[in-house]
């Protein structure tokens, strides 16, 4: 199954450097329709304004964390089916389990490489 490379993707991280890195790596994968948010609440507002095909979010942000964003997305009937990838330095098993229980589609631990990002997106979206 081919993936629409023009679908809107929302990337969420409180580090502007990380937003730039993820955006540039996505561009190399030919995903060019990318929006950014710097915390969960700003991301949620954007998700309610526009239909996104994928959310890639950090966990550790204020005031709304990535996990809270994930739970809010899964609890919203209009957003609940959006694929959601967590990219975070939180690498403890209990974190991964908590994210999985909240409905995350995949989980990437920082630092990550382009190949991992590519693979996880392919797994979540069904091929790139």
């Amino acid at each position: 199954m081919s993936v629409d490379k023009k679908m809107p993707i929302l990337i969420v991280d409180d580090y502007k450097t990380m937003l730039r890195i993820i955006r540039n790596l996505l561009r190399q994968l030919e995903f060019t329709n990318v929006d950014e948010a710097t915390d969960g609440s700003a991301a949620l507002a954007k998700l309610r304004e526009k239909p996104y095909g994928l959310v890639i979010s950090d966990w550790n942000m204020q005031p709304m964390t990535g996990l809270e964003l994930l739970k809010a997305v899964r609890a919203d009937p209009k957003l609940k089916d959006i694929p959601f990838i967590m990219i975070t330095a939180e690498s403890k098993t209990e974190n991964v389990i908590a994210a999985k229980q909240a409905g995350v589609n995949n989980y990437i631990v920082k630092p990550f490489n382009a190949e991992t990002l590519h693979k996880k997106i392919a797994m979540v979206l069904g091929g790139t």
Binding site: D13, Y15, T17, M18, I21, N24, L25, A89, K110, P111, F112, N113, A114
Partner: peptide
């Protein structure tokens, strides 16, 4: 780009 991950981790 991959190496620049260090910024987030060190931060």
């Amino acid at each position: 780009y991959e190496a620049c991950n260090f910024h987030d981790i060190t931060g």
